[in-house]
Design a protein around this nucleic acid. Structure first.
Lengths: 300, 300
DNA sequence: CCATCGGTAGTCGGTGTTGGAATATCTAGA
DNA sequence: TCTAGATATTCCAACACCGACTACCGATGG
C-alpha cells in the first residue's frame, strides 16, 4: 500500500533537529550523530520526497515550504511514539520510572549536559524525557519544565533559574555598529526574538526606563536555539538567560556589553501536579535538580 | 534526549498490520514481508518496549493493552508521515499524481490485487494510497473510497460494488451446529460484526422478515479483515459483500448456506469532491476503476 | 584578490541491522 | 496421538548506516 519506503525514525529526528538548530553540525550533536550522517540522512530524505527540504545558504540550513511541512509532521509522528512509550510506561507503573516534559532549549543547554551525573548517582531511577509537544503530553508527564512566573493551577512549582537575563551580541556586531554604552543604544540595532517569549524586550525596556522602545528591526524565531545561533552569527541583539549561554560568554563568542540586562519576572520552573502523590523516583530527581539549580548561585 | 532507540517505521507498519489482520502470516503479506520478518520485528519491538504487545494464542495474535496503545500511536505516526507526503505532493502539484484515501479492507482485498493492471496501462499516472485516517486526510485526498448509501454533501459518488451481501460461515461450524436451512436458524449462532457497519445484521433481519432478531451472541471487531478471519476460523456467522470473499467461497474456506443474503442499501463508493476540477490523472483512474467494478457484474 | 573560517557534500570502509529460506516448535482440534 | 496451521528461531547474504576523512563552497576580513 506504500508507494515508496517511509522515512526512518532517525531521519525524522534529524529533520526535527535540523529545524531546531538550523545547521547540520549542531543538529548532529543533538541527535548524537556526526555531521556527515546528518547530511546524508537529509539527502536521502530529499531524494525519497523528490524535492529539497532545506535551503543551503552557506551559513546553515533553512527549511523550504515542503521542509516545514515535513518537520511539522515528523514532530507529530515522533510525539506519537513518545506518547506510546509514556503510556506504556505508565501502564507498567514502575514507581522508579518518571516521565519528564522538557523545553527543548533547557534540555539541550542545561539538563542534558549535567544529567549524566544524576544517572551515576541514582542508577535505579529510569528517567524518560520528552520534548515534543502533543496535546496530552503535559498531563501524562510526572513533571514538566515550564517557562513563566511560577503560578500554574494545580501544579507545585519550584524555581530553577533563568530570571537573570543578559543582553548579548556577537563581538563583531558591536565592533561594526559602534558598541553599546547605555540601553538607549539598543534602538539602533536589530533585535532577535522568540515567538513564545515575546515579553522579553518590553520587560527590558521597562527595566531600563526606556520609553517608546522600537528597535530598528525585529527578527523572530521559533526556537531559542536559533535565537542564540543568530546572535552568535552577528545578526542582532538577543536577551538570553545568563545560565544558558555561560559557555558562549566565557569563550567570547558572545559578549554582554556593559553588563546590561535585567531580572525578569519569567524564569524556568519545574512543576509537579499536586493532585497525586509524587512517585519515589520523582522525589529523588527533584531534589537533585534543585541542588543543581542552587549551585548556579542565588542570582541565576 | 532519547532513552532507547525508537522503533523503525517498518516496525510500525508491521504493528498496524498485525492489529488489522490478527496474524503474523497475513500481516506479512500486507506489508510485503515474510512471516519470519514480521515475527522478528514484533519481537524486537517488544524487547525495546519491555513488555509483550501481543498475546500468542496458537491461533493468531491479539494485542495486549500495551499493544493497543502502541498500535494506536503507530497509526498516528504513520498517518502523520502519509499526510506529510500528501501535502508535499499537493505542493508540487503534478497534475498526474493523485491521492486516494482507501478503506483498509477494500485496499487489501480488492484494489491492490488488480491495481498492477492499472499501472501497466497508465504508467504516467502516479497514484498515492492512504489508509490511515487522520483528521484532515479526507479533504486532502483527490478521491475517497467510502462505505454508505451514496449521498455525501459536496461529493460526486460512483457506485462500485458491495451491496450484494452474503451470509457466510466456515463449513466446520455449520457441520458442528447442524446447518442453516432458513434465516431463522441464524438465531442459534454467534454472529460476527464490525464496529463501523453495525447495520448489517438488522438489515439482514429486515430483509428476511425476521422479527425480534437477537442472535445467541455477538462478537465485534474493529477491522473487517478480522471479521472474515474469525468467520474462517469458525467463530461465527458473518455478513460480507460477496465480491470481497470470492476467493474464500471458491476455495471452500467459507460457504454461503442456502444462498442466504440480501441486497444492502450500503455499498462501496468512490467519491470525488465536486468543488474543484478533477485532476487529469484522476479522470483516467476513475474510468479504469468503474470499468473494473462493472466487470464484477450487475449484481455485485 | 587571496587566505581563512565555518559550514555542507561526497567517498570509503567496517559494522550492525534486516529480511528471506529453511527449520524447529507450539497449539488446537479431530 | 496425529495433523494442520500457526509462530519462533537459526543461519546467511545483502544492504543501509554511521564515522573518519577529504573535497568543496560561500562569506568574511585583511
Amino acid at each position: 500500500m506504500q508507494a515508496r519506503t517511509l522515512p526512518s525514525t532517525t531521519a525524522l529526528r534529524v529533520l526535527v533537529a535540523l529545524a531546531e538548530h538550523g545547521s547540520a553540525s549542531e543538529a548532529a550533536k543533538a541527535v548524537h550523530l556526526t555531521q556527515s550522517a546528518v547530511s546524508k540522512q537529509l539527502k536521502g530524505l530529499e531524494e525519497s520526497v523528490g524535492m529539497p527540504l532545506f535551503l543551503r545558504n552557506g551559513r546553515g540550513l533553512t527549511p523550504t515550504e515542503a521542509g516545514q511541512i515535513y518537520v511539522r509532521q515528523a514532530r507529530v509522528a515522533l510525539g506519537a511514539l513518545e506518547a506510546a512509550a509514556a503510556r506504556v510506561a505508565a501502564l507498567r507503573g514502575s514507581p522508579h520510572s518518571i516521565r519528564l516534559h522538557v523545553l527543548p532549549i533547557l534540555g539541550d543547554r542545561w539538563l542534558v549536559p549535567r544529567f549524566s551525573r544524576f544517572t551515576e548517582q541514582h542508577p535505579g531511577v529510569d528517567v524518560q524525557f520528552t520534548t515534543f509537544v502533543t496535546s496530552t503530553m503535559a498531563e501524562e508527564a510526572d513533571a514538566v519544565f515550564r517557562f513563566g512566573e511560577g503560578h500554574w493551577p494545580g501544579q507545585d512549582a519550584d524555581y530553577l533559574f533563568g530570571r537573570n537575563v543578559a543582553l548579548v551580541a556577537a563581538p563583531q556586531l558591536l565592533q561594526r555598529m559602534g558598541g553599546i554604552e547605555t540601553a538607549d543604544d539598543v534602538r539602533r540595532y536589530t533585535v532577535l526574538d522568540h515567538f513564545q517569549t515575546p515579553l522579553r524586550w518590553s520587560e527590558f525596556a521597562e527595566a531600563q526606563g526606556l520609553t517608546d522602545f522600537t528597535p530598528a528591526h525585529t527578527v523572530r524565531f521559533g526556537f531559542y536555539a536559533l535565537v542564540i545561533r543568530a546572535a552568535i552569527a552577528g545578526q542582532g541583539l538577543a536577551l538570553v538567560p545568563r545560565s544558558l549561554i555561560a559557555d558562549e560568554l566565557a569563550a567570547g563568542r558572545l559578549v554582554n556589553p556593559n553588563g546590561l540586562g535585567f531580572f525578569s519576572r519569567h524564569g524556568y520552573w519545574l512543576t509537579v501536579p499536586n493532585d497525586r502523590p509524587p512517585r519515589p523516583g520523582l522525589v529523588v530527581f527533584r531534589a537533585w535538580l534543585l541542588e543543581e539549580a542552587r549551585a548556579l548561585g542565588p542570582d541565576a
